[in-house]
Design a protein around this nucleic acid. Structure first.
Length: 383
DNA sequence: GCCATTTGACCGCC
DNA sequence: GGCGGTCAAATGGC
């Protein structure tokens, strides 16, 4: 990928902003060790203030990233679409097989090499269950294939609204050989449709009750008017929110309820866009759904956590309660992006355990969120 | 009849 | 040439 001079300047600016964010995170973390167990209120307020500052800083970073993206991507829909996809869709031809042309359907190339790609690991509580993990979105299965060396076939899914709205999102679901309760779900492309994201927990409950595929479940969407602000939302989670940071002693690696005393205090829990699926602007791609949310993508994750992640490579988040499932899912997407592809995040809650891994298919991702110096342990290295 | 799933075949990439 | 990803006809359920 080549960048113009403007992009260089922009990237320089971006790096500066991110450095500010890192410094603020460091400050925030500096406040934390003294507060072992319970934070005194002033310290809490301080953390909150710094966290707020972090949000602003990273919000700026996102804005700069977008500007860079617009400068040399040029497309309104982001950089994820490879040239072939954009151009072919522009051709507007009907999708028919043609020996002289690459196979396409409605502008979507058969091979989506350039689309962002990331993997989640879903763990179901009961390995004997037959259903596939649900992420709250609506998918349509279009294929299944036996994969060499794998005991279980791989299922291919695409967005239900692919035809209606041209949504390019696809996913591949494969049951793990090693652990029958684990599903590797590889997502590719982001949802451009406007479907309402169901709450996985609801879907799971429906699956339990009805014994059918979770996708058959319907869930009442949260209305935008119900979007709480940060404080309100934290209050709504504080009694059953726990964050475990792998690699740290248990005593310091989790908090419950009001005990927002360690590095987790910096994590500004995500609030899912009530307008549907999680916006994925942290990758500089996609757009917030119309009427979407008041959050800045950067507010989803605190560099305090991201930094820790970059060092430890692993952490898990448990979110219990009625809102736990969707938040955990979305948090994972954000955290995984913010901690570079080398980090893995695992999310445990009653039914599913999520693990997120990002692939280095997308160079922009590295540029925006990679930690080339601090997290050089990524197995993918330079893409 | 509509829609989702299944499954064999086709085709691109490595 | 083999493998993986997608297509599209066939099939089944509602």
């Amino acid at each position: 990928m080549q960048e113009g001079g403007g992009a260089d300047v922009g990237m320089h600016l971006l790096l500066g902003i991110l450095a500010d964010g890192e410094e603020q995170a460091r400050r925030l973390l500096g406040e934390l060790p003294a507060a072992d167990g319970q934070l005194p209120l002033p310290a809490k307020e301080c953390c909150r203030a710094v966290a707020h500052q972090l949000r602003c800083t990273l919000g700026k970073a996102i804005a700069v990233a977008k500007a860079i993206e617009a400068a040399h991507g040029g497309g309104a829909s982001g950089t994820d679409s490879p040239r072939s996809a954009e151009e072919s869709s522009g051709a507007g031809g009907v999708a028919t097989r043609d020996a002289t042309q690459p196979q396409e359907s409605q502008g979507i190339p058969k091979r989506r090499k350039g689309l962002p790609r990331w993997t989640e690991k879903f763990r179901i509580a009961d390995a004997s269950l037959e259903y596939t993990p649900d992420d709250g979105l609506s998918w349509r299965k279009y294929g299944q294939k036996d994969i060499l060396g794998a005991r279980f076939p791989r299922g291919y899914y695409r967005c239900t609204y692919r035809n209606a709205q041209g949504c390019p999102a696809t996913k591949q679901v494969q049951r793990s050989d090693a652990d029958l309760a684990v599903f590797d779900v590889t997502y590719q492309g982001e949802h451009t449709c406007h479907q309402i994201k169901q709450r996985p927990a609801d879907a799971v409950a429906a699956a339990r009750d009805g014994g059918h595929h979770p996708l058959a479940a319907t869930a009442a969407p949260v209305t935008p008017s119900q979007e709480p602000d940060d404080v309100q939302l934290l209050a709504s989670f504080k009694n059953d929110l726990r964050v475990d940071i792998g690699g740290l002693p248990p005593a310091s690696s989790s908090f419950h309820g009001h005990d927002v005393s360690n590095s987790a205090a910096g994590f500004s829990y995500p609030y899912a866009s009530s307008a549907g699926f999680l916006p994925v602007e942290y990758r500089g791609q996609g757009q917030l759904p119309a009427g979407g949310s008041c959050f800045s993508p950067a507010s989803f994750v605190s560099p305090a956590v991201a930094t820790t992640l970059a060092d430890s490579d692993y952490f898990s988040v448990t979110l219990a309660g009625t809102r736990g499932a969707p938040v955990a899912s979305e948090l994972g997407e954000v955290v995984s992006a913010a901690t570079s592809s080398s980090a893995t995040a695992a999310f445990d809650y009653p039914m599913y355990e999520y693990q997120y891994q990002l692939r280095h298919d997308d160079d922009d991702l590295d540029t925006l969120f990679g930690h080339p110096s601090s997290s050089s342990h990524g197995q993918h290295g330079d893409a």
